[in-house]
């Protein structure tokens, strides 16, 4: 395929965007804010233990929070970026260039994936300084890596599809933020999923967020802690299965949705977006 060179250009674009992001005080502020919230939450309950075990609250909750932040970042991040860059003409610029869209979407994926690195670092570093016994066994880091990668593949397409379908960037809140928050609430991040009604438990297990959290807990916690989970097991195969299915569905659907979005781009569409954006009160 002649367009492969554009993947390379897009990867370079993603790297540049990432470099610009970590140097921007706005993005640094965002990372620090989420870190403060997450670590602050764990710190306030630093003396709590999980009932019936000798596991600390922090050690059980940290992996879940990481799972949540990954899902949140790669859903809301691309959703917002696509909606915004469709309005401001970034997408149209790439449409006017040979193989530009290939490069643009590659850049988006590279940038959004890399953005997880500072996000995780700002939470992991202070957490490991403040709390003990977070990682039961160093081999868990290997699990962290594959869970993060598979989780990325499973959740980022959701963000891209939301970004492609949302009518404008101001609606990303209600189209993206709200469902993700709701899912976070029922996905066993803040309290065990078994405490919810049966049907909610089923719904939560359809979506990748629960499995991301479970996978992260299986990476960080000792094997005994699996007793706290549904079925008393880490259900590693099921985790791979559900996340894998989401990744495959995403890989099939996302290009179709993105192509449809790109087809509808034109100068007058961008102009309309500009007018809509300057007209906040309607």
């Amino acid at each position: 395929m002649k367009g492969w060179y554009a993947v390379r250009i897009g990867a370079r674009r993603g790297l540049t965007e990432f470099g610009q992001s970590v140097r921007s005080t706005q993005d640094q502020g965002f990372y620090l804010f989420t870190a403060l919230l997450a670590v602050g939450y764990l710190f306030l309950r630093r003396n709590a233990d999980i009932e019936g075990t000798d596991l600390s609250f922090a050690s059980v909750t940290l992996p879940s929070i990481l799972g949540l932040l990954i899902a949140f970042g790669v859903v809301i991040g691309p959703a917002y970026a696509l909606a915004m860059e469709r309005e401001d003409g970034t997408l149209l610029r790439h449409k006017a260039i040979p193989h530009g869209l290939t490069g643009y979407f590659t850049g988006q994926m590279v940038f959004q994936s890399l953005s997880l690195v500072p996000q995780l670092v700002v939470i992991l570093v202070p957490s490991f300084l403040l709390f003990d016994d977070l990682m039961a066994d160093p081999s868990g880091w290997f699990t962290v890596v594959w869970v993060v990668l598979l989780g990325l593949a499973a959740t980022m397409p959701i963000g891209m599809v939301i970004g492609a379908l949302v009518p404008n960037s101001q609606k990303v809140g209600s189209w993206g933020m709200l469902p993700v928050m709701t899912l976070a609430g029922i996905s066993g991040i803040f309290y065990p999923i078994q405490q919810l009604w049966g049907w909610v438990e089923v719904v939560a297990q359809i979506f990748p967020m629960y499995w991301l959290g479970l996978g992260m807990r299986s990476a960080f916690l000792p094997d005994e802690a699996a007793a706290l989970e549904v079925g008393g097991s880490w259900r590693t195969l099921e985790t791979v299965g559900v996340l894998g299915v989401w990744a495959v569905i995403g890989a099939v659907i996302t290009p179709i949705v993105l192509r449809r979005m790109a087809r509808r781009q034109s100068g007058s569409a961008v102009e309309a977006g500009r007018e809509a954006a300057t007209q906040w009160v309607r």
């Binding site: 002649k2 965007e17 610009q20 970034t90 610029r93 006017a96 260039i97 040979p98 100068g267 102009e271």
Partner: peptide
């Protein structure tokens, strides 16, 4: 086609794209 694209230039009106570039 993409070959055709490479021969055509379009001057677009930007307003806030690529702010950090």
């Amino acid at each position: 086609s993409e070959d055709w694209r490479a021969r055509v230039g379009v001057v677009l009106q930007s307003w806030r794209d690529h702010p950090r570039w």
